[in-house]
Design a protein around this nucleic acid. Sequence first.
DNA 1: CCCTGATTCGC
DNA 2: GCGAATCAGG
Length: 185
Amino acid sequence: MVSGAQSTGWTDERVEVLKKLWMEGLSASQIAAELGEGVTRNAVIGKVHRLKLSARAKPTNTAPRARPAARPAARRVASPAAGIGHIGTKPRAAMARPQVVGATALAASPEIEAELYVAPASAELFIPEDKRLSLLQLTEHTCKWPIGDPLTKDFYFCGQHSLETGPYCDFHSRRAYHQLDRKKR
DNA sequence: CCCTGATTCGC
DNA sequence: GCGAATCAGG
């Protein structure tokens, strides 16, 4: 009976890992990635709540989450058989290493992957001088992301081909948002 | 846009 | 019990 490897289903072993990592402060997605196969971040969160866990770094506050009121009906995947809909999302290959955990107040555990790679540190793109644009050189299709100090001659615009969806290029549009937009109702 | 956890609800 | 879908916030 040794062979009872239920890939799905929470074994004690997995639960322990889950609890450990959760208490360590790792995010649900990271834990899911660690557990690997068949485990999504939702599964992790769901299990965490089921285990009465959660509240790892919450000294106070019960956070009275506002309920979504009335759920119209969370329909499961309707999958109409042959979904010809175009794939709008990119596979993004493998994101095995998400951006480093916040690690606000947790002790590093050597037992876990101690492999942390330092960020690229490239906070900005380097624009070759021949690609830099002055204010007057901007057009509808050039990235209008300002670089440098406007008070010095070391100021110019990105100048890359901008997206149709915004005034910036792909790189800078992501930098422009990332935290804004949604809360700014 | 990316991400986080929280919640609901069909299975 | 499980987890996808969805919500709400950062």
